[in-house]
């Protein structure tokens, strides 16, 4: 336990600080004056319409994109100089459908930051990759070609890859976009476990407003502006404010929320 506390002291309590982040593309604002603070162990859900800047914000937190204005700090450091402690699960649609790689090698990639100059993965790396694959129930697919899997299966493999990184902060970009209800539930349970038992900080982008409000502590809405009230309460006003005129989504959301309540 002492070891754990020491590690916490070293990393500090503030997991993420975003101050006045602004990004424009051409004449359009992608993100407007985003401010956000997360403590270690927070579990934040981000909802918002497509094109609302969700993926862009994740990429800024990951240090893959530089904002035009504002600053981002992960445990007090710039994201680009704090590699290996933040991991993410991208959308499975981002991949080259013909790339020759099997599931096992995709998951091992999560350990690449620890590889250094060694040409081979260690036994520990392989043990952890195996464990992560079992955790997402994809171990029997380990020799399959990654691109031959269904969207939901790919999503779970990408989840295992992020887990073997053993990150302090985990970012997920619609990890349940193409999975069935059963997998959806087990994914959220897995995240809940990581968050509660291992004190990992999690940021989850999703359209599943229903699931979000029952699993996540805090919810923010992003539609160029970030509306964040700090509490777990997801009000209808928040959703309407962020989704704007996307009435379909709002109607759908209302239904989901009622179902959760009942």
């Amino acid at each position: 336990m002492i070891g754990v506390f020491k590690k916490e002291d070293k990393l500090g309590k503030k997991a993420l600080t975003i101050e006045g982040v602004h990004l424009t593309k051409g004449e359009n604002d992608i993100l407007r004056d985003i401010n956000l603070e997360l403590d270690r162990g927070d579990f934040l859900g981000i909802i918002g319409p497509n094109g609302g800047g969700k993926t862009t914000l994740l990429k800024i937190i990951l240090g893959l994109l530089e904002p035009d204005k504002g600053k981002v700090r992960v445990f007090g450091k710039r994201p680009s100089s704090f590699r290996g402690k933040v991991s993410y699960v991208p959308q499975h649609t981002d991949f080259d459908a013909e790339f020759p790689i099997n599931v096992w090698n995709v998951v091992l990639m999560g350990r690449i930051g620890r590889l250094g100059l060694k040409p081979f993965y260690s036994r520990e790396d392989k043990r952890k990759a195996k464990k992560a694959l079992k955790k997402v129930e994809m171990h029997r697919f380990k020799d399959r070609q990654f691109s031959s899997l269904s969207g939901g299966e790919q999503q779970r493999v990408l989840m295992a890859r992020a887990l073997v990184c053993e990150p302090e902060i985990l970012l997920l970009d619609e990890p349940t976009a193409s999975v069935d209800e059963k997998i959806k539930t087990s994914t959220y349970e897995l995240l809940k476990e990581l968050n509660e038992k291992r004190n990992k900080t999690i940021i989850l982008v999703s359209h599943d407003v229903g699931f979000l409000s029952s699993y996540v502590e805090k919810v923010a809405c992003l539609n160029q502006d970030l509306i964040y009230h700090g509490s777990g309460e997801l009000t209808h006003e928040m959703i309407e404010e962020s989704y704007g005129c996307e009435m379909d989504v709002i109607a759908h959301t209302h239904e989901n929320m009622k179902m959760e309540e009942s």
Binding site: R83, G84, Y88, P90, M109, I112, G113, P119
Partner: peptide, 19 residues
């Protein structure tokens, strides 16, 4: 080998992981 594979397959993840 692994770095080149990672950069070819998923450059963004590789960057985040520290490559």
């Amino acid at each position: 080998y692994h770095e080149l594979q990672a950069v070819s397959f998923d450059e963004e993840f590789a960057e985040v992981a520290g490559v």
